[in-house]
Design a protein around this nucleic acid. Structure first.
Lengths: 207, 207, 207, 207
DNA sequence: CATGAATGAGTCTTCATTCAT
DNA sequence: GATGAATGAAGACTCATTCAT
């Protein structure tokens, strides 16, 4: 992702920044923001404490950067999943599948993300929350336009506003993935994302 | 709720305990567990610090008590909403409405509740989390049995497992209420809970 | 010891005072002054905290009273041991034996006593120390007069000042009893007090 | 005592450690362990509180280190005093003199030492006590072997077990030094250690 | 430029003491 | 007079942040 045309010095700095963020993610997601010390992060990242402060003004800033980076990654991926020219239903199916894959391969990140998007943000700071919500909202709008387009194409019945449908679908995937996160054995996230789709579509598709 | 036949001394103690919990709820939900000091709580509750420790062994215990009390209140209310002998669809409608009302009159509590049920708990402690999840799961089972009964009565088509439907409905109400929480103006939680019901039922009801 | 002619009310008070002191002795000698709380003492003595303060102005005063009472008991007993008309050597022998008996039957007290007489007093307060030293000094003077008398009677050679001899004898009994306190098995305090007497009386150098 | 070939950084650390210990010794010996706060120590040592914790894990550890260091110093010195090839009586005389000198130049330390070796240890911790007793016992054994050797050489009559004689001599020096500590004017510790030696060596009984 | 030693404000918690009942 | 609930000062300890080397 890093621009390879940057001067070597700059590229090096970006790499170090990444290393710090990686170590931080590991620690924060395992123990929580308040239970991780800068010393601990420095040790894990194999930098001096002072160096951390060269990259991030303070602990909060480091946290913000971490969350935003992860949120970006996440929203990019799901947004891409519903892009392209595929059939609307395929797009929804792809979305569910891709989101599931991201969860499965980023449980660590996800825990942190949930912690942020669901109120915990109150604990740390308000500003961050806004930026995350912004990204989330943008994604919901993209998803809504899939529904909208489907309606225009008469594939979908207008049982609710497109945005509401987007919110509904997004929340259902969250809920099922949340169950899976709790107990992957008991609640396997559908290999085929059909359960969720069924619930949403069974009444939605125009007969 | 407090037993009025308790000796006066006991009633007084319960009242004080409640005052502490109320002050704590306000502070925790506004600033988060780690950003509130016992001194602050004592000041808000208008008790001496030492008095706090008469009621709660330590800060964590106070937090636990607070969360559990609120969760109980919440789950009792929504469980009651789907009890009784009403028609299944009416029960779902009542659930959505009641949950909305609870949210609207307990925003403070809700913020804290979400913080707990959605990952932030990682930050504070594991034990509490389990008890909350247990309550949540119990409610989901009750809700599932509403769907199951509806299927047995042939009011509902078996488009998905009852428990999955319960999860879906619960998550949708959360999502819409979450939007409303963010911006009550922009996202009014449906006075009539029909949007959510529509999404869920439009395909669910047996034609 | 309590004057039976005191009004009943007074006698009762004295008895309560004793009960407090007994409980306190047990706790202080087991855990040390600073590791015992007034609440703990009140519980052990089965009085209310406030009642403790009726008898002793504060924790320190309670401590002082306790130590002084024990010291008095102790010094009375050893002083009595060297009183009477017996032969000087018998008096010394009796002293050693009696002191041993007191130790053996009051280990609890003794630990506290040592803690006080040997520097720990620094920890708690200076005033107490003085009163104890006074008693100790008085006893040493009594003991010295035994030596002095023995010299006058020509039973003893004037190898050192009587007071110095008293100090020497007292310190030796302390040392041997201290060993015994540490490990009663390994260092049995002489049934017959002859070891200590030998050292003092025999004369070590080979003629 | 510090290895001068250590890297400068290490030497500096050792020096700081010593400064902390020195300040701590002063405060503890004057006011006692429980009446000295870490804040106070930090102020006296002219370090930040946090710095104290870089050197000692907690207050107890600091105390332990202090006591053990002083005890080592003390026992080394007295053990050395009875080493070498001198005549046994000379060794005893040297011991008495050297111990006196140590006392005189380390009153502060001594107060703390006594506090530990004589019961006060109950108050703070058990582990430390053991290590000190161990050192003390080792010294007594060395001293005992002086008596034993003296007996083998027929300089001493076997009036008591060598170990008992060691205990006796040690306790007498303690007692006389303790008097001196109380009131240096009234009880000058014998310039020439002859009083104590006399008592021990002369033989008290008139032949 | 990187380092990590030093800092000290701020945290939770205990407990001697008071005083309304 | 007895009680023990309430008080809040004070203590040990942590950790984000700075800055001399």
């Amino acid at each position: 992702m890093e621009n390879q045309s940057l001067p070597r010095r700059e590229r090096e700095k970006l790499r170090q920044r990444q290393e710090i963020l990686t170590a931080t993610l590991l620690l924060f997601s395992k123990k929580g923001y308040h239970n991780v010390s800068m010393r601990e992060i420095a040790a894990k990242a194999e930098f001096a404490i002072g160096t951390l402060y060269k990259f991030f003004r303070n602990k909060e800033e480091l946290y913000k950067a971490l969350i935003l980076e992860q949120a970006d990654r996440f929203h990019e991926a799901v947004t891409e999943a519903i892009g392209g020219n595929a059939d609307e239903i395929d797009k929804l199916r792809t979305f569910i599948r891709v989101k599931g894959e991201i969860f499965r391969s980023n449980m660590t990140t996800i825990r942190l993300y949930f912690a942020e998007t669901r109120g915990a943000s109150l604990n740390v700071m308000a500003g961050l929350d806004l930026e995350i919500r912004e990204r989330h909202r943008n994604f919901l709008l993209s998803l809504a336009s899939v529904f909208e387009h489907g309606m225009q194409q008469k594939h979908f019945r207008p049982i609710a506003a497109p945005f509401h449908l987007a919110v509904a679908l997004d929340s259902m995937t969250n809920a099922f993935l949340s169950l899976w996160l709790e107990d992957p054995q008991r609640y396997p996230y559908p290999e085929e994302p059909d359960t969720i789709l069924n619930i949403l579509l069974e009444g939605l598709v125009n007969p």
